[in-house]
Amino acid sequence: MWVNGDEQRRVVHVGGEMDIDRAGMLGAALHAAITEAGGHDEIVVDLAGLSFLRFLRAQRPGPSAADRG
């Protein structure tokens, strides 16, 4: 993951494999791009180099269709 750009646009490039273990890195890169002093007109997330993407999160099961009537 790397970040570049110019005065108007910041580009966050994501490459390789992205899973829940690397989500914090992506979040930090996006946070830095968003909060950078001076700001940018555009923030672009470039996923062209991404070869694998998987995010799983355990969720509490909601009511089933039968429970809802």
Results as ranks from 00 to 15, higher is better:
residue 8 Q to S: 08
residue 26 L to A: 06
residue 68 R to L: 12
residue 39 G to W: 01
residue 53 L to H: 08
residue 8 Q to N: 05
residue 14 V to L: 05
residue 24 G to Y: 04
residue 40 H to W: 04
residue 13 H to V: 14
residue 4 N to H: 14
residue 20 I to W: 07
residue 42 E to L: 05
residue 43 I to R: 00
residue 68 R to T: 12
residue 46 D to C: 06
residue 57 R to L: 14
residue 57 R to G: 15
residue 18 M to G: 06
residue 51 S to I: 14
residue 42 E to G: 01
residue 31 H to W: 07
residue 33 A to K: 00
residue 3 V to F: 01
residue 7 E to P: 04
residue 66 A to P: 04
residue 4 N to I: 13
residue 64 S to T: 15
residue 49 G to R: 06
residue 22 R to Y: 06
residue 69 G to H: 08
residue 11 V to G: 02
residue 40 H to C: 06
residue 54 R to Q: 09
residue 2 W to C: 13
residue 26 L to C: 06
residue 59 Q to C: 14
residue 61 P to C: 13
residue 23 A to W: 05
residue 47 L to S: 00
residue 40 H to M: 01
residue 32 A to L: 03
residue 9 R to C: 15
residue 36 E to T: 14
residue 27 G to Y: 01
residue 33 A to Q: 01
residue 28 A to W: 02
residue 52 F to W: 08
residue 6 D to G: 09
residue 35 T to D: 03
residue 63 P to Q: 11
residue 38 G to C: 05
residue 61 P to F: 11
residue 15 G to V: 13
residue 15 G to Q: 11
residue 26 L to I: 10
residue 37 A to N: 03
residue 6 D to M: 05
residue 21 D to Q: 13
residue 20 I to R: 07
residue 20 I to C: 09
residue 33 A to V: 05
residue 53 L to R: 09
residue 35 T to H: 04
residue 20 I to E: 07
residue 11 V to R: 04
residue 2 W to D: 15
residue 59 Q to I: 14
